[in-house]
Amino acid sequence: MSWFMPFRRRKSASVARERLQILLTHERGADNHSNLIPLLREEVLAAVAKYVTVDVDKVQVKIDRGKEISLLEIDIEIPCDPEPSSLKRRDRTSRAARSQRLAVSSAH
């Protein structure tokens, strides 16, 4: 008899609706890119590793999904070389961390 108790707690269906909307937005995003991220991570790593030593655990790949465009961000932490001589010829500007940003158009 809700008209006697206007301040009663929220209806369970509206809570269910809200929880689902949040969860599914998250899951749909994850599904669309479930293959893309590991693939990119692997190939970009391989390309970078040709020139500099890279710690596999210090690589971060993430995607910010937007309406028109999504931003793909790849952070590769390149350690300060203990033996600078080995790197001299290849890359003198090696910093503690370097980030590369690529913009890719969204999948949809």
Binding site: K11, S12, A13, A16, R17, L20, Q21, L24
Partner: peptide, 16 residues
């Protein structure tokens, strides 16, 4: 139940 707000109604499910 849907009328009482204790079950997702048809519009909720279609929307989602």
């Amino acid at each position: 139940r849907a009328g009482r707000g204790d079950m997702l109604n048809v519009d909720d499910v279609i929307d989602i």
